[in-house]
Every structure is written in structure tokens, then in C-alpha cells.
């Protein structure tokens, strides 16, 4: 065992160099800045800028303003945060709604002894796009959704459109669902496969119809997969900058883009790092809430 442990050292070194060190650097930059003479000093100006009320906009999520007439003025970056959260939540929910049935289909077809080949083929077709670069896949969507793109040309044949698919919530949400769907389906599929068919038969035998069987047996048993699927979709959806950058046409600001701009365009390391730290804290907090929920779920079974 001891000699095996040595094999983990390269990975530990890797983590130290490429995970811990950058994290520490970001934390360092978030609280420091250079003064005019090029001297480093401690500051909270990055965080101040993020929460600065000098520039405010109406909170633009869940159609609060247009549908409910609610006009909350918030700092620009808070709105960007809220917008990212909104789109990430929507994408996660849609991934779950689309992904769960897909996971069920994949799980059942790979359990079917007679048609196992079909199940494997289905899984293969499902996973195959993941082997392609995400950038290329997202560019492909550009070609499809452009005002003069393939879909609009087809719609034009029946005198519809051109429909504006790109550079709005729809385009970005679609890009996220498309890119992250496999991360929802695979963990759910892997827990569904492990549910013994006889447990489902037992539920039916005890009087549960299909809906009750799903709600009382299949869903609770697949919760670990659902939670890790949510994790795997929500986290990257919250932090991505590639998808809004391409499908948002550079005009659309999510938190990932905001951070990128601070570093690449404004060259404001302090604000960029402060945003990164806030995003990191937010993501860790939501992960914590998810795992807390999972635990409570377990304990819930213990009661009575």
C-alpha cells in the first residue's frame, strides 16, 4: 500500500501547481492593487467596484420588470450575477427535464438483454458529440441559428421569420443545454441502471401504479444521480464564458464574460479577481446547499 501511495505524488504536485497556486494568486490579486508608483498595496477596491451603486441598472431577471413591473435598481455586476444565475438555473432545469427521460431510455435499453446492442449504440450516439471540441460545436450552432442560417432559411420557405435566435436568452440557453446535457444524463443513467427491475416489480406488486412507482421508488433511488447531474450542469453553466461569448455575439454579459473582460480588456486584475472570488464562493455555497439537501433526504427516510 505504501508503495502505491507514492504513485499519487505526481497528481498531488499537479494539484499544487495548477489548482492551489492559481487560487492563491487570484485571492492575492483580489485584495491588492498597484498604486501610481507601481507599489503593491492592500485594497478592497475590487469588491467595492463590484457592489458600487454609482452605476445601477434595473434587475433584469425572470422578466421582473416587463411582466411584474418590479423595478429594482442594482449595481451592474449584481445584475450580471443574477442574469448568470437565471440562465444557469433555466438550463439546469431544462437539462433535467430533457435528460431524465433520456437517461431512463438509455438505462432500460442497456438492461434489455435481447437488445443490448441497441442500448450501447444509443449511448454511443449520445456521447459521441462530446468528443468534439466545445468551441466547434458551438460555432456549428451559430451556422444553424444565424438570421441567414440553415434554420431560418428553412423557416423562410414557409414564410416564417427570420427569427432572432441568437444574441438573446434563448440562444445562450440552447447552447448551454446542448453542451451540458450529457453531464446531466450520464450520472442519472448510471444510477438508474443499478436499480433492480425486481424492486420496480415489487412496487407494482404492492399496489403502486406507474406514477406512484416513479415518485416513491425510482425517483428517490435516482436522487444521487440527479444531484450530481445538477452539480455537473449548474456549475459550468454558471461560470461559462465561451457560450455567451459566441451565441451572445460579444454583447451579452454573463459573469464569465465579465471576469474575462476585466482580465483581457480592462486589465483590471483586482476587479477580475474579486469577481472570481465571489463566483467561487457562490458556487461552493450552492454545492453545499445541494449536498445538504442530499443528506436531509437520507435522514428523512430514517424518521418514523
Amino acid at each position: 500500500m505504501k508503495s502505491l501511495r507514492r504513485l499519487t505524488y505526481p497528481y498531488l504536485v499537479w494539484i499544487a501547481i495548477f489548482t492551489l497556486a492559481p487560487l492563491l494568486l487570484v485571492a492575492f490579486y483580489a485584495f491588492t492593487a498597484y498604486d501610481a508608483s507601481g507599489k503593491l498595496f492592500f485594497t478592497l477596491q475590487g469588491f467595492n467596484k463590484v457592489f458600487s451603486t454609482a452605476d445601477t441598472v434595473a434587475l433584469n431577471i425572470f422578466a421582473l420588470k416587463s411582466l411584474f413591473g418590479i423595478d429594482w435598481q442594482v449595481p451592474i455586476y449584481v445584475n450580471v450575477f443574477a442574469k448568470s444565475l437565471e440562465i444557469a438555473l433555466f438550463s439546469t432545469i431544462i437539462c433535467l427535464l430533457v435528460g431524465y427521460p433520456a437517461a431512463w431510455l438509455l438505462a432500460r435499453s442497456s438492461q434489455d438483454v435481447k437488445h443490448r446492442g441497441n442500448g450501447n449504440l444509443l449511448l454511443f450516439l449520445f456521447v459521441m458529440p462530446m468528443w468534439m471540441n466545445a468551441l466547434l460545436r458551438t460555432y456549428a450552432w451559430l451556422a444553424l441559428l444565424e438570421p441567414r442560417g440553415i434554420i431560418n432559411s428553412l423557416l423562410g420557405l414557409i414564410n416564417i421569420g427570420p427569427v432572432q435566435f441568437l444574441y438573446n436568452d434563448f440562444g445562450i440557453g440552447l447552447g448551454m443545454v446542448y453542451n451540458y446535457l450529457p453531464f446531466m444524463v450520464l450520472p442519472i443513467q448510471s444510477v438508474l441502471v443499478k436499480i433492480s427491475p425486481s424492486v420496480i416489480e415489487a412496487a407494482e406488486d404492492l399496489g403502486a401504479n406507474r406514477r406512484q412507482t416513479f415518485l416513491r421508488v425510482i425517483l428517490p433511488l435516482s436522487m444521487p444521480g440527479v444531484l450530481s447531474g445538477i452539480n455537473m450542469v449548474f456549475m459550468p453553466a454558471m461560470t461559462t464564458f465561451l457560450i455567451p461569448d459566441l451565441l451572445g455575439g460579444g454583447r451579452y454579459l454573463l459573469i464569465g464574460n465579465a471576469i474575462e473582460r476585466q482580465f483581457m480588456i480592462s486589465r483590471d486584475m483586482t476587479t477580475g479577481s474579486a469577481l472570481s472570488i465571489l463566483l467561487l464562493v457562490f458556487v461552493l455555497a450552492s454545492m453545499r446547499i445541494l449536498t445538504r439537501y442530499e443528506k436531509e433526504n437520507d435522514e428523512g427516510g430514517l424518521l418514523t
Binding site: 425486481s198 415489487a202 407494482e204 406488486d205 399496489g207 403502486a208 421508488v217 433511488l221 427516510g301 418514523t304
Partner: peptide, 29 residues
């Protein structure tokens, strides 16, 4: 359908619900 039949089954490999305790397993029906 099975869920409307006045029969109950004891399965070969028990097929107990792994997410429920003994009480809730028995209470299921």
C-alpha cells in the same frame, strides 16, 4: 395490471426498497 391484483409477491432476492427502512418498506403498500 399487477398493482390492482389482490395478490402479493415475496421475491426471490427479496427486492426490498434500499432507500427505505424496515418500517417504511413494510408500510409501502
Amino acid at each position: 395490471p399487477p398493482y390492482q391484483r389482490q395478490l402479493n409477491t415475496v421475491f426471490q432476492r427479496y427486492a426490498l426498497f434500499p432507500h427505505l427502512n424496515v418500517y417504511d418498506n413494510i408500510a409501502f403498500g
